[in-house]
Design a protein around this nucleic acid. Structure first.
Lengths: 107, 107
DNA sequence: CTTGACACTATGCGACACTAAGTATAGAAT
DNA sequence: ATTCTATACTTAGTGTCGCATAGTGTCAAG
């Protein structure tokens, strides 16, 4: 599967994963992989920049935790983040309907 | 709706439209718009390059027709084009399942 | 004779997923 | 002890592709 098809959709997926509670980058990667049954097995170089970008936009907030000796940056959904997630869900629904309409077999 | 979400999906849509028979660029644009109920209202600067790219890849073939005084380049699906369309359909199905799995509300 | 739909071409930009390379800790295996 | 593996984060650079923009030209309607 080509990688461009993810373009523009990754943000929503990340926001969705964080909707269930704060988590750190590495765990976000794992969650995306397991929840998608292996389809979204994303390299770190893909996910971390997304996290940074979303934080810069105010959709996430982060803080360092040095709990188990390992330093982790834990991300949480912000208010705007929740709004963006809701909007993203709608966009996705709309998008799939449109693609489905074009793609559907001729009768 | 952000425009990046189309990335990587446009090729399949164009191939699908041409599955119903050859047509020229402008008409492809119209078909995408009407079949998607207005969602995919794409500028020429988006669609023509796609057509050229798909032809370069051998998925389409084209020929000039100067029928009504107006010169038109008519595109047809090739054999490889049909295969690519089939693959693209499958990719789309797979992709939506995966996104759906991640996006679905917590129980 | 101007407006608007039709029809195609070309240049360049910006967003973003990904590659690749690097840093660093903890626990298990040899 | 040491090496390997998994964990955990960073960043510079690359390539693709949708889109903006601008330009060319035909044709019918008013």
């Amino acid at each position: 599967m080509k990688s461009e098809i993810l373009k523009g959709h990754l943000d929503v997926l990340v926001l969705r994963v964080l909707e269930d509670g704060p988590s750190h980058g590495y765990r976000v990667i794992e969650l995306l992989r397991t929840r998608s049954a292996g389809t979204f097995d994303l390299p770190e170089g893909t996910v971390y920049p997304v996290l940074h970008r979303l934080e810069r936009r105010g959709l996430l907030s982060s803080s360092w935790t040095t709990g188990a000796g390992r330093r982790r940056r834990v991300y949480s959904l912000t208010g705007p983040g929740r709004l963006a997630l809701a909007a993203g869900r709608q966009d996705w629904a709309h998008f799939t309907v449109a693609v489905g309409a074009v793609l559907k077999e001729a009768t």
